[in-house]
Structures are given as C-alpha cells and as structure tokens.
Amino acid sequence: MTRRLLRGPRAIAAGGLLLLGAALLLHGTWIPVKAAVAQVLLERSWQAHLEGRVVKPWPWADTQPIARLIVPRLDVDMLVLNNASGRSLAFGPVWVDPSAPLGGYGNSVLSGHRDTHFEFLRHLREGDRIIVQTTEGMETFEVRSHWVFDQRDEYIVLSTLDRRLTLLTCYPFDSIVPGGDLRFAIEAVAVGAGDRSS
C-alpha cells in the first residue's frame, strides 16, 4: 500500500499539497519574525537619526524610523516609521499622514498591525503612561480611553486643543481573517509639559 502511495499521480498531488502547506506555514511564520527582525535592523538607523545622520535600515528600505514608542508597564519598546503604506506596517507602527506631527500640538495618529506590533493595545489600561521619543525630546502621554468604531462612518478628529496621541489598529484582535472595517483606538493625552501640578 505504501509503495502505491509513493508512486501514483495521486501521491504526486499529495506531495505537492504538502509542499504548498509548508510554504504557507513558512510564509505565515515569517511575518511575525520579519516584524521582530525589522525592529532590530531599524535600531541602527534610529541611532543615526538621533545623531542627525541618515542611514537606511536595509539597503532597499523605503521607510525611516521617526520616533520611539515606550510603554513601561507592558515592557513595550518599538520604533515608529514615517510611511503608512502596507509595506512599512510590516516593519513597525507608522505615523499616519496628515495627523499632527509627533511632538507637536494636535492629535498624532499611529497605526500598527493588531497581531504584531500593536497587539499590546488590548492590554493598555486607562492611566498607563506612553512615552514618545523624537529628535525633539521625550513626551509622556497618559491613556484616557479606548473605543471600537467602524471606519466607514467615523473619523478621527485631528485638531485638538492639546497634545494627543491616538493609537489605531484593526479589530477584533483574535480574528483569523484580515480586513473588515472595525478599528480599535486608544486615546492618550500629553502630561508633563504645561501641567505643572502633576
């Protein structure tokens, strides 16, 4: 019986399927690995950026780290990229144009994959501190609220009176299929500068 299996065209088809399955698995596994590896490669480019030099994270890179995002309680420390194409999202969370520049007034919006970099959003609680480092310096934000919305009928207000950070990702977190119109948002407000009583 085994011999027959190894020979027939049916066996060839099954072997092909095995190979396809392995390739799919590998591809699926590669995505989170790439997400993690990219952050390591970005680190060198970020250090150069802080010193005012431009160093590409990898030779064919079309994106640049522009800020560092730190959540002390969750041990999150990652680099934020400047280009919100689907490609950059594979390597890190991105700053969304035309939101307020990081470190400036208004609402700065960052977006990241719900199953890699921004998976931690589900663990953020009100009151958590988020630190954003740019070439301008460090700024601390405090998480005020989170909500889920349908991106077809709501949009994010960019002109706010304060310095604000909105972190966006897809929702629900555990959905197998990518896509869909639900988004999960974290809203954080700058504390520290201008808030002398705290």
Partner: peptide
C-alpha cells in the same frame, strides 16, 4: 479611513496547516 492593520500571518498559517 485608517490603514488596514492586520497581517495575513494567522490566515496563512491556518491555510498551511
């Protein structure tokens, strides 16, 4: 509109399996 922010990783792995 905000970018699509989920990778097909889980789907690919599921399909592979």
């Amino acid at each position: 509109s905000v970018p699509q922010t989920a990778t097909p990783a889980a789907l690919l792995m599921l399909a592979g399996a």
